[in-house]
Simulated scan of single mutants.
Amino acid sequence: MKTVGAGLSAAALLLLAGATPTAHADTAPESGNWLMLGVSHEGAPAGAEGGTLLRCDPPGGSHPHAEQACADLAAADGRITALPAEDALCPMIHAPVTAHAQGMWRGRPVNWSETFPNTCTLRARTGAVFALDGT
């Protein structure tokens, strides 16, 4: 009788172990190149501004410029700090914004954050990657 009970327990554990990854996979972004992007403005309540999912290979997610953002990131090997800066004349207005990125790029975890003097400077430095409002 002990053998049957032990066998059932082992089978139950195997079933549970097999079910857990499948349930988790439905709620997590797919494997591959993906980033959850966000921009927070100084003085805004924490969590007031949502995030945008950027998926690459193929480009998609909720990012309004996914194709260009993925191309920019691919050229920089996924390193946001290596994105080429655009020539832009930005006003010297102090309105700090902080850009956040978390996700995976070519199997490497990404966890990046940087504060910029204003939105113009953010866009000049990060191009389409943080152009989250559709403009």
Rank of each mutant, 00 (worst) to 15 (best):
Gly32Ser: 06
Met36Cys: 08
Leu89Thr: 08
Ala82His: 08
Ala99Ser: 10
Ala46Cys: 04
Cys70Ala: 06
Thr135Trp: 07
Cys120His: 07
Pro45Asn: 09
Leu15Cys: 13
Asn111Lys: 02
Thr121Asn: 11
Gly61Asn: 06
Ala6Glu: 11
Ala74Gly: 13
His100Arg: 01
Thr81Val: 11
Leu37Tyr: 02
Ser31Asp: 14
Gln68Pro: 15
Gly38Asn: 06
Gly7Asp: 11
Ala82Tyr: 06
Gly18Thr: 04
Gly61Lys: 00
Ala12Gln: 03
Leu13Phe: 14
Asn118Ser: 10
Met92Asp: 15
Asp72Cys: 02
Ala11Trp: 04
Gln68Asp: 14
Arg108Ser: 15
Leu54Glu: 09
Leu14Ala: 11
Pro58Arg: 00
Ala85Gln: 11
Val39Tyr: 05
Cys120Met: 03
Thr119Asn: 12
Asp57Cys: 03
Ala82Cys: 09
Val4Met: 04
Pro91Tyr: 07
Glu67Leu: 01
Gly78Asn: 06
Ala66Glu: 05
Phe116Cys: 09
Asp72Ala: 05
Gly61Asp: 13
Thr22Glu: 11
Gly107His: 07
His94Ala: 12
Ala88Leu: 06
Val97Met: 11
Asn111Trp: 01
Thr3Glu: 14
His41Ile: 07
Ala69Lys: 00
Ser113Met: 01
Gly61Pro: 15
Leu35Thr: 05
Asp72Val: 02
Glu114Gln: 11
Ser113Glu: 13
Thr27Arg: 01
Phe130Gln: 02
Leu53Arg: 00
Gly61Leu: 02
Arg79His: 13
Leu13Arg: 01
Ala28Glu: 12
Ser31Gly: 14
Gly107Val: 09
Asp26Pro: 10
His65Phe: 12
Ala25Lys: 01
Glu86Lys: 00
Ala11Met: 05
Cys70Gly: 13
Thr98Leu: 01
Gly60His: 06
Arg106Tyr: 13
Leu53Pro: 15
Leu13Asn: 12
Pro91Thr: 07
Pro21Phe: 08
Thr22His: 06
His100Ile: 01
Leu37Val: 01
Ala71Leu: 03
Asp77Cys: 06
Thr126Asp: 12
Ala131Arg: 00
Leu13Gln: 09
Arg79Pro: 15
Asn111Val: 08
Ala12Trp: 04
Gly127Ile: 02
Thr126Pro: 15
Thr52Ser: 12
Leu14Val: 13
Thr3His: 10
His63Leu: 04
Ala71Gly: 14
Ala131Ile: 01
His24Trp: 10
Ala66Tyr: 03
Asp57Ser: 09
Val4Gly: 09
Thr98Trp: 01
Gly38Leu: 00
Gly107Lys: 00
Ala46Thr: 08
Met36His: 11
Thr115Lys: 00
Asp133Trp: 02
Asn118Val: 08
Arg79Trp: 10
Cys56His: 03
Thr115Gly: 14
Leu35Cys: 07
Thr3Gln: 09
Ala71Phe: 10
Thr52Val: 13
Leu132Ala: 08
Ser40Phe: 05
Gly18Trp: 05
Thr22Gly: 10
Trp34Ile: 04
Ile80Pro: 15
Ala131Tyr: 03
Leu37Glu: 02
His94Ser: 14
Pro45Met: 04
Asp77Pro: 15
Arg123Val: 13
Thr81Asn: 11
Gly32Pro: 15
Thr27Val: 12
Ala10His: 02
Arg123Thr: 14
Ala85Leu: 04
His63Gly: 12
Met104Leu: 09
Ala19Trp: 09
